[in-house]
Design a protein around this nucleic acid. Structure first.
Lengths: 119, 119
DNA sequence: CTAACATATGAACAATTATTCAAATGTAGG
DNA sequence: CCTACATTTGAATAATTGTTCATATGTTAG
């Protein structure tokens, strides 16, 4: 019956040795947060549809909106989130802004996720 | 100025050809949802801490709670989410339930995420 | 400068979700 | 059977988040 915040003195650990080992290997707070943010960003159907559409070619906001059948505004909002996590990059050409995948990690993560799903 | 729900007739697509191509390659609705669910599950600091602790060894609920310094209840709730996405598996030994990573996809996804973070 | 258009942004609302607390399982030992 | 303990569950609250609508940038053409 452990309660949050308690330290090891009062805790009824079943396996103190294992716990100590695991504690020593904990990830830094920042790392965990950053990692969670990446996955959180990938954890939305709209954003995945956007990324999926960008797999083959770069697309502008208007095109993306047409492909996934959502408003330009909604797409733009989500692109901002994707940008903030460096999952997409963009280039401007006149009035038009073209988005594309930021790097190959995105492809790999996407592919790995699909593999997990298809079993 | 596209609005949600419109079909291609009224939409002002900049590049009709690209849009048609991208539309043909869209993922199935179910696939996108399943993929989003996996990433959503990975997109939480508490759950990542749990998975990280399970990287080296199996641990029971009580131990996990001690490692990540949260209540047994909170951990149990999150383990249920991880189980529902088949990211962890468990075995019972008397009163104690031991959790471990479900398969190597979890490790790979985790590692890929870390790589993206560490740049 | 003005009009037209692509994109971005802000505020608001609805929906989802994580944690807590209390209580319920289920298991082992006396 | 009763107690102790590990884990699970349910309800409630608080916080986060996606979409919409209206409006604001910023760029190009006339």
């Amino acid at each position: 019956m452990t309660t949050a915040g308690e330290d090891c003195c009062e805790v009824q650990c079943i396996h103190e040795d294992k716990v100590k080992l695991a504690r020593r290997e904990r990830l830094a707070e920042d790392t965990v947060t950053a990692l969670a943010d990446i996955f959180k960003t990938l954890g939305d159907a709209t954003r995945l549809r956007i990324l999926s559409a960008l797999m083959r070619q770069e697309l502008c906001v208007c095109d993306l909106a047409a492909v996934i059948e959502m408003s330009d505004s909604a797409v733009s909002h989500q692109l901002r989130v994707l940008r903030s996590q460096k999952l997409v990059k963009f280039r401007r050409e006149g009035k038009v802004v073209y988005y594309s995948l930021a790097d190959d990690h995105v492809r790999t993560l996407f592919a790995q996720g699909l593999e997990h799903v298809n079993e």
